[in-house]
């Protein structure tokens, strides 16, 4: 996002803030651990800071939206998170809201141009 001025960057950040939770809930339909999730979110275009994502995972777990399990099969033990049934419901609701917002914005734009 080079060449973006401070105001623009701030608005972009605000617009994207809530989407990280949805992205996590959707991505963790398949179990994953912190660093791997960070990578796949970055690949998908969600640039999340590590110091934001790791505490966020624990918060979502506390809220019952994620479940976790330690995997000690590998040399390095890792905490795997997976979206819980509650988390899945929330993700569905957030996606419906997302779609509704998209439709609303589209309507606004088309209403203006006509």
């Amino acid at each position: 996002m080079s060449g973006v001025d401070e105001t623009t960057a701030q608005h972009l950040q605000e617009l994207r803030r809530g989407t990280v939770v949805l992205a996590c809930l959707v991505t963790l339909e398949r179990p994953g651990y912190g660093y791997a999730l960070l990578e796949s979110l970055a690949d998908a275009g969600f640039a999340v800071d590590a110091n934001t994502l790791y505490p966020l995972l624990r918060r979502l777990e506390r809220q019952g939206l994620l479940e976790s399990e330690w995997n000690t099969d590998d040399a390095r033990p890792r905490k795997f998170y997976r979206t819980s049934p509650t988390g899945r419901e929330l993700a569905a609701l957030l996606r419906r809201d997302w779609d509704a917002l998209h439709t609303a914005i589209t309507d606004l734009i088309e209403g203006e141009s006509s």
């Binding site: 912190g34 660093y35 791997a36 624990r58 390095r76 033990p77 890792r78 905490k79």
Partner: peptide, 20 residues
């Protein structure tokens, strides 16, 4: 109650980042 768990996970994550 959280300390040991966070410590273990954070340490693993830091190692992942360092390895990368």
């Amino acid at each position: 109650t959280q300390r040991a768990d966070v410590e273990r996970e954070l340490r693993g994550s830091i190692e992942d980042h360092v390895d990368a």
